[in-house]
């Protein structure tokens, strides 16, 4: 019997370039079940929290209550933005009794409930944490011919910020560990937690293009064949904005796609055809 988790996909999971396909293929191979959180809502991201803190907290509280209804105090997600918003909501709920009460009244209307003790114990984890910390090592480390890709890890800004709860907030190593577990070469560089520009890429394309160019250039300095990411917005910005400047193309893959390649899963099961910057050997 394998591991089973309550999974909060978030709104960008479906449109992400092969995230769902590859996550499902890899999870099958390592006997992890991701059970989708029923009736989930958007986390609110930076938008809702910017305009109305109480509404942002409500969205996080509702997700926590939905998880509670499934008998779980743990939510797994593959999006830095969702994880960050959930953790922010949790923190504010614990700080502010008034907000907590407001939220509980509103939850009642949906026949949901949230115990203050439960929100305290709620764990919000990235799928990458599950892969590195929970999945038995032998699943990843099997003897098999390895692709010769040199892989640059890219976390984006939010992975372990602001509190360094998951990993070091400036120099995390979880993704490096994972790439090594897969038996692939890790490319060191200094752009791992530089910000991709997030949703500013629509209103402020030129400004964000500068950030992305710096990241791509930094990664390419040490001859990476591809970069691997853990967040749909990072993937979208790094993948799509490369067309704005003149650097050699750098494929931006989800860590789940890299895992699939490292494990020798059928390439067709990894959604690589959805990338804008194609992976040549695929």
């Amino acid at each position: 019997m394998g591991l089973s988790y309550l999974f909060f996909p978030g709104c960008s999971y479906e449109t992400a370039a092969g995230y769902r396909e590859s996550a499902e293929a890899v999870c099958r191979a390592v006997e992890v079940e991701l059970k989708e959180l029923p009736e989930w809502n958007c986390c609110g991201a930076s938008a809702v929290f910017s305009l109305d803190r109480a509404e942002g907290v409500w969205l996080a509280a509702r997700l926590a209550a939905l998880a509670g209804r499934e008998g779980k105090l743990e939510i797994v997600s593959g999006c830095n933005g969702c994880i960050s918003a959930l953790k922010k909501g949790k923190k504010l709920l614990l700080q502010d009794k008034g907000l907590m009460e407001q939220v509980r009244v509103r939850l009642k209307k949906e026949n949901l409930k949230l115990d203050p003790a439960d929100i305290k114990d709620l764990r919000v984890r990235h799928l990458l944490e599950i892969f590195v910390q929970d999945v038995p090592v032998q699943f990843w480390a099997k003897e098999r011919p390895k692709p010769k890709f040199k892989v640059a890890p890219y976390y984006g800004c939010l992975f372990s910020r602001p509190d360094g709860e998951i990993d070091d907030n400036e120099h995390p190593i979880l993704l490096e560990s994972f790439i090594s577990l897969l038996g692939l070469d890790v490319v060191e560089h200094s752009m791992g937690t530089a910000c991709c520009g997030a949703s500013h890429s629509l209103p402020h394309k030129a400004a964000v293009s500068v950030l992305v160019e710096r990241i791509i250039r930094g990664i390419q300095t040490n001859n990476a064949d591809l970069a691997t990411v853990i967040c749909p917005l990072c993937q979208f910005n790094l993948d799509s904005i490369q067309a704005n400047f003149d650097l050699p193309p750098l494929p931006i893959l989800y860590f789940t796609q890299v895992a699939g390649l490292g494990m020798g899963l059928p390439v067709s099961s990894l959604g690589l055809n959805k990338l804008l910057v194609p992976l040549k050997e695929a």
């Binding site: 709104c11 989930w40 809502n41 958007c42 609110g44 991201a45 930076s46 938008a47 809702v48 910017s50 305009l51 109305d52 509404e55 969205l59 949703s199 500013h200 629509l202 209103p203 402020h204």
Partner: peptide, 18 residues
């Protein structure tokens, strides 16, 4: 401009949850 993007986002979350 950012508040306009945030409002477009916020409105959708409030009306349809996703």
């Amino acid at each position: 401009k950012m508040p306009h993007l945030f409002k477009a986002f916020d409105r959708q979350v409030r009306s349809g949850k996703r």
